[in-house]
Design a binder for these strands. Structure first.
Length: 558
RNA sequence: UGGGGUGUCGCCAAGUGGCAAGGCACCGGGUUUUGAUCCCGGCAUUCGCAGGUUCGAAUCCUGCCACCCCAGCCA
């Protein structure tokens, strides 16, 4: 068992349980409700549950907690499975569904009624709320609380048979209406919902609540460590109450950890949906979304996401992780593994006056500065090239390490060139630079000893290809967009997306397959769009920029 | 105001009575055909606060304070 990241309380608990024989193998589960897309927070939960099972040689189930058909759908079941697989995890056996345990759950509900531990309540939702009391005042017993077992059985049978209207009755556990823990004030076990279920169709008109279902599902599957987030801590006494009062065959235990929050991000389902509905983003998989599908399309990798989850650790405290840590994880993986390429985002034509019109020279460049196994690529050098307009100035101070009129610069992987002349349009803007190559400078420094001050990327104007490049930035320009009294929509970063229709890419990049990651040198990491990219019409998404200490010092203005 | 939690560097986080790991961020310096990477160095006399126990405490005790969660027939 290999341990990633630092030690944490869950590892300690599991190691102890294994050592003292409480369990012989650990079984965990990732239990999403199929009512939305998975996001970065779920990635953490997936990483914790599957990761722990992997680490301790156990198993992890994927179980859809589908107890509320009104909000769920097959679309989400499909996307969730795809996301978990993409992250690189394999669940044990078949996918599980809480709905496949509905009959067992119902039988256990009958058992509870027979034991005098559950009753059918006729209170309306409004009345029930009044009877429940408040945080500081105890609740009071429902007048229907002391019905006979026989009457309760009859009523429950009728509920199941669809004899009652939605909301008219519920099945409740008989625990303690005066408990300081609200969850123990006779919690609801079943409610009437006359809607079809995506898995069970119209078989049922009553559906179990989360509380009545979750622990029993865990017991049925032999889950040893049921790991959830902190807000369920108050439910644990109820979780245990069911396990103790029902004839279940295994004893799962619940443990809670703190949810993952990252700065500059919102993850509430409601807010993500609003971003989609208001067309702030193009969909749930928009590269700016913190959804797994969005991050995937952005060019994040499973390796980076898993590393990030290990980096932040698993604790019982809730904090906000700096997105810079996520960005570091992405850069770390991509720097090591992404092939390099050259792309000019803001083209400025350079004419090499010592090259003939039809002259073509091909230089070979490594795909990666230190990964020989990634191979090489061919770069055509022609008379007309494009460089980035930001990489040329007519005059500049000594700190500027790019091309300046009358000075030299290294074309990455190719010649050192010297700028001789600028051509301007009627508005006085530079539209072309004439330059010449310094002899014998491919792989060598200039023989006259005058070294260029910098290196810039370039693309052949005649052999290069045009591409669409989408530059993404943080969706929010506030570190805590949904905190405080303001509306999170007010903190949308107006420059979160810039589309460049006519960027120039070196020929080899057009051959990229969708989802191939690259580093466009001096610009950042980019990915060929999963859906829109093709060799004929290349489309790249910016994943994350290179670390830029130049811009950080406020000296990067061009 | 009832119950349940959490408080260690700007952020995340080890540490479980023996004298404050690590990562991110940041700040130097070196290497560099990416102002990237990489390398070297710096960055908590102090662990929410106040008392107490002890030769010795972030770790034990007492009392405060701050923040988070709970009053869905959501999960």
């Amino acid at each position: 068992m290999e341990q990633q990241g630092t030690n944490n309380f869950l590892r300690t608990i599991i190691a102890d349980d294994l050592e003292n024989g409480r369990v012989s193998d650990i079984v965990t589960r990732f239990p999403p409700e199929p009512n939305g897309y998975l996001h970065i927070g779920h990635a953490k939960s997936i990483s914790v549950n599957f990761g722990l099972a992997e680490e301790f040689g156990g198993r992890c189930n994927l179980r859809f907690d589908d107890t509320n058909p009104e909000k769920e759908s097959q679309e989400f079941i499909d996307s969730i499975q795809e996301d978990v697989r993409w992250l690189g995890f394999a669940w044990d056996g078949e996918v599980r569904f809480a709905s496949s345990y509905f009959q067992q759950l119902y039988d256990w509900a009958v058992y509870l009624v027979e034991q005098g531990l559950a009753y059918v309540d006729d209170l309306s939702p409004e009345e029930a709320r009044e009877y429940r009391g408040t945080l500081t005042e105890p609740g009071k017993n429902s007048p229907y609380r002391d019905r006979s077992v026989e009457e309760n059985i009859t009523l429950l049978t009728f509920m199941k048979a669809g004899e009652f209207e939605e909301g008219s009755r519920v099945l409740r556990a008989k625990i303690d209406m005066a408990s300081p823990n609200m969850n123990l004030r006779d919690p609801i076990l079943y409610r009437i919902r006359k809607v079809a279920h995506h898995q069970t169709g119209t078989d049922w008109v009553i559906y179990p609540t989360y509380d009545f279902a979750h622990g029993q599902e865990d017991a049925i599957e032999g889950i040893t460590h049921s790991i959830c987030t902190l807000e369920f801590e108050d439910h644990r006494p109820l979780y245990d109450w069911f396990i103790e009062n029902l004839p279940v065959h295994s004893r799962p235990r619940q443990y809670e950890f703190g949810r993952l929050n990252t700065s500059y991000t919102v993850t509430s389902k409601r807010k993500l949906k609003q971003l989609v509905d208001d067309a702030v983003v193009s969909g749930w998989d928009d590269p700016r979304m913190p959804t797994i599908a969005g991050m995937r399309r952005r060019g994040f990798t499973p390796t980076a996401l898993r590393h990030f989850c290990d980096m932040v650790g698993t604790t019982r405290s809730d904090g906000v992780v700096d997105v810079a840590m996520l960005e570091h994880a992405i850069r770390d993986d991509l720097n090591a593994n992404a092939p390099r390429g050259m792309c000019v985002l803001n083209p400025l034509k350079v004419v090499l006056t010592d090259f003939a019109e039809d002259q073509l020279e091909v230089v070979t460049a490594p795909a990666h500065p230190s990964r020989e196994d990634l191979g090489e690529r061919q770069l055509p050098v022609t008379r007309e090239l494009y460089i980035d307009a930001d990489d040329f100035r007519e005059s500049a101070n000594k700190k500027y390490k790019r091309l300046v009129l009358g000075k030299r610069v290294r074309l990455r992987n190719a010649y050192v060139i010297e700028a001789d002349e600028v051509i301007k349009n009627a508005q006085g803007e530079v539209i072309e630079v004439h330059a010449h190559t310094v002899p014998n400078t491919i792989g060598n420094d200039p023989e006259d000893g005058v070294k260029p001050k910098g290196v810039i990327q370039w693309v052949s104007a005649s052999k290069g290809r045009q591409a669409t490049v989408r530059l993404y930035d943080r969706l929010f320009d506030h570190e805590a967009p949904d905190k405080g009294d303001h509306d999170f929509m007010a903190h949308i970063n107006p420059e979160s997306l810039t589309v460049i229709q006519q960027a120039w890419i070196e020929p080899a990049l057009a051959q990229a397959a969708p989802e191939d990651n690259f580093q466009f040198e001096r610009e950042g990491y980019f990915v060929a769009d999963r859906f829109d990219h093709s060799s004929e019409a290349p489309v790249f998404n910016k994943t994350i920029g290179l670390r830029d200490t130049w811009a950080q010092r406020g000296e990067g203005a061009s």
